[in-house]
Each structure stands twice: as structure tokens, then as C-alpha cells.
Amino acid sequence: MKYKAMSLGVALALAVPLAWGEASVEEYRAALADKDANPGLLTIDKGEILFKEKRGPKNASLEKCDFGLGAGKIKGAYAQMPRYFKDTNRVQDVESRLVTCMVKLQGFTEAEVKTHVFADQRSNEGNTDLEALTAYVAYQSNGMEINPPLKHPMEKETLSLGEALFWRRTGPMDFACSTCHAEDGKRIRLQPLLNVLNKKDIQATMGAWPTYRVSHGVVRTMEHRMWDCNWQMRTPDIDYGSPAAVALIAYLTHQASGGVYDLPGMKR
């Protein structure tokens, strides 16, 4: 499995610069869709081990973590997130919820958990614990409908906030998320851009995250995508699991409601 995944990665890396015609780009995308060759499955396995392992000052696993369906119930939980949590009195996505559980159940400090959230692709680093845990928990909703709840007033407020932030232009480039993601058929260079306002488009995209990114060699999560887009917009770093990041993820997830999770995804 590992060998197969590696050879695919090498083949893709070699194949891409050879020809930039549309046909070869299509072939490349077709190769990415081969689920059995998705190296993200290894990250999910790593996440499962970490999830069940007793860790931290309290020597506890994350098996009692409540992702909204009750303590220890992870089957289908990701498909119903982000959601409001009474104990923290805020709307949380899967990643900010994992931080909460690592603090409450395992006794880590939030600062410890958030010291190094994303793998550094520049040094070919493997997935971080948080990325692997996220991939594992999300995978327990594979094949399920994207169905975030919208009952609690704070869930409604977070959704409206996320939509407003999607259109908020800022920084030296005058960019907002909507600059690149509100029209069909647009590209940055040769990279096609998702149209968040197009139901099919956003369902396909959200249904494929967390996703194995070939160019990074690791699984990336929605929190990383929020950071990455903000970084490209030339803002400061958006904080992991912060209200703005969660609100944007809530907006994107609600736009994709009714779609189906097909995990792990694989992207450029």
C-alpha cells in the first residue's frame, strides 16, 4: 500500500511538468480519483491509533470525546458539524472540538496542542497529530450526507457571520474569499477554482475534505484550507479553530448541505 502510494506520487510528480495540455491535466485528475491508492488512508490509520492511545497528563484516550452525538459517538458526527456545544458555549468544527477534548480529557494545554498544527510540506514532514486525528474522525462519516444542524441561535448566527466574512475584502490585495470563489469556470493560472455559490461544485469540494494534497504530500483539513487561503490573501495567520475560521467553515458546509462525504479526497 505504502509502496503503491509512493510510486503513484512519483509518477504524478514526473508526469505533470511534461505537458501542460488540457488532456494531460484531465488524466492527472483521473489518477487522483483512484481511492485505493490514496495515501490519506495511512494518515487515517495513524489518526485511529492516536485517538485510542492514552496520552497527555491525564493519561486518557479521546474515545470519550463528544462530537455532538454524545460521548464516544463518532460514527456520523463529522457529517453533523460544525455545531453548537453547550459545554464550551460556542459553535465548533471538528478541529476546534478535538482541541477541546485534548485539553479536557487528556490534560494538555491549548497552547501545547496548537504549537504546530500543520505539517510543513517544505521539509516533507508527515501529518501532525491534529491533522491525523481530524482525518480519522471525519472518515467515520464517509458515505454520509453533509447535514450540519441549524437549530440553535448561535448556529444561525455563525452561518450568517461566515457568509458575511466570505465577502469581506481586506489587506493589500483587496481580496475576499468571494474574489476567487463566486463564479463558475474561473482559474488561477491553470488551477480551476471552486464556485462556492454553485451547489454541485461546493458539495463535491466539501465532500472531499479532509483531502490528500499531492503537492504537499500530506492530508490537509478545512482549517488548513482557511489558513492557506488567508495566507494567499496576504492576511496574518488566521488562528486554528478561531471564530472566523469556524464561521467560514460553517458557511461552506451549509452551502454543501445534501452532498455526500467521499473520503479521503485527493487533490493537486
Binding site: 457571520l161 493589500p172 492576511t235 496574518p236 488562528d239 478561531s242 471564530p243 472566523a244 475560521a245
Partner: peptide, 21 residues
């Protein structure tokens, strides 16, 4: 609401420039 979310979501520190927000 947006101002509050922005203020809570970007932290000052080395390499950051909050004026861009």
C-alpha cells in the same frame, strides 16, 4: 459581529501585521 470575530481570530506576534485586517 464581524469586527469581534476578526479581533478574536488573528493573534499578534512575530511576522503578523494586524493592520492588514
Amino acid at each position: 459581529l464581524m469586527d469581534k470575530a476578526i479581533a478574536e481570530s488573528f493573534k499578534p506576534g512575530e511576522g503578523q501585521d494586524l493592520s492588514r485586517l
